[in-house]
């Protein structure tokens, strides 16, 4: 177990290093000049040169790369080109927003997806099965921005017009400030992210359950005279949940790097917004920092999924 962890962490660090290098390299291959952009149209050559010197862009690429890696190893991702804040503090502002959005949405879609999936699987080809599968596909086919806007139109705008102010249109209140307001501001984003994603989980759970419920050990469970609910949940779902949780870990890991569309639709100042703005401003240190963070989330999510797998299934040994 420990050996497994050590190996996976080393492997993860290597992945992150490769990601950082690729992103870094892309910025030098792409034909653009950050100093020129930052200096503005009117600037003369000296101003541009001065900015270039300030940012360290006149140093040899390898030396820039070396100092970037060295600082990154010490948790210093440099300073943003566009506003002189450190990248870590920019991330520090955005991260709680994204984590709030993703964790809430993820729990919602997990519960929604798994319960509906089990329901559909235990009554295959029934009305319940067909209806839920239909709904799931409907939301699955819907682009996030459209669903977000529709929810805003119906639950914020229309209700607002008749004087009902349950759902705010945009913004974020930190949990530490006011948990109730925090949840109120996040309900619509949570719904959006959950509805779009739940379909995958319904289908995954349904398929996995259908397979498991045909297994011999389910027949044994029924032959033992257990209650139907117990057969379905303790025996069926217990075995069917493994692939679902694997997908869950990877999805959450990916989204934590920034739920770009949802954050933009609902004006949430999270990492997704930061990705968009730093890309638009060609803010190299911030972009690299965000890409690294997103990759780190995926790497960590994968390690957690592997550990979870061995906890859930006694037959899986980590080595």
């Amino acid at each position: 177990m420990l050996r497994f962890l050590v190996r996976r962490v080393i492997f993860g660090v290597v992945v992150l290093w490769i990601v950082a290098t690729v992103v870094f390299a892309m910025y030098f291959i792409a034909p653009h000049d950050v100093a020129r952009t930052l200096a503005g149209r009117q600037a003369n050559a000296e101003t541009v040169a001065a900015i270039r010197h300030n940012l360290g862009l006149d140093r040899p690429i390898l030396s820039q790369y070396g100092s970037f890696l060295w600082k990154a190893l010490h948790g210093n991702l440099g300073y943003s080109y566009s506003n002189s804040e450190s990248v870590t503090s920019l991330i520090g502002h955005g991260l709680p927003v994204t984590v709030s959005l993703v964790v809430g949405g993820a729990l919602l879609w997990l519960v929604l997806g798994v319960t509906t999936g089990v329901l559909a699987a235990t009554r295959p080809r029934s009305v319940v099965d067909r209806t839920t599968t239909g709904f799931a596909l409907f939301f699955y086919s819907m682009p996030t921005f459209l669903l977000g806007e529709v929810l805003l139109l119906l639950l914020f705008f229309r209700l607002h017009l008749v004087g009902i102010d349950w759902f705010p249109g945009a913004g974020f209140v930190p949990f530490s400030e006011n948990p109730l307001q925090w949840a109120r501001y996040l309900i619509l984003p949570w719904l959006t992210i959950a509805l779009v994603t739940a379909a995958t989980y319904i289908r995954l759970t349904r398929g996995s359950m259908l397979e498991v419920m045909g297994e011999d050990y389910i027949r044994t469970a029924r032959a033992k005279g257990l209650r139907k609910r117990r057969v379905i949940y303790r025996h069926g779902l217990r075995a069917a949940i493994t692939p679902v949780l694997t997908q869950f870990g990877i999805d959450v890991g990916t989204l934590l790097g920034g739920a770009i569309v949802t954050e933009n639709v609902f004006g949430l100042p999270g990492l997704g917004q930061l990705v968009i703005s730093s890309l638009a401003k060609q803010d190299l240190p911030t972009v690299i920092g965000l890409v690294l963070l997103a990759s780190a989330f995926v790497v960590v999510a994968n390690i957690i999924v592997d550990i979870l797998y061995s906890v859930l299934d006694a037959r899986v040994r980590l080595s």
């Binding site: 011999d216 027949r219 032959a223 033992k224 005279g225 217990r238 075995a239 299934d313 006694a314």
Partner: peptide, 26 residues
Amino acid sequence: ESELRTVRGAEIAMIFQDPLSSLHPH
């Protein structure tokens, strides 16, 4: 179904062909 459940397992028990797949792996 509930009456049958009290018979199943307690009064009439079953064993099956493949004991590996008949026992719950988890």
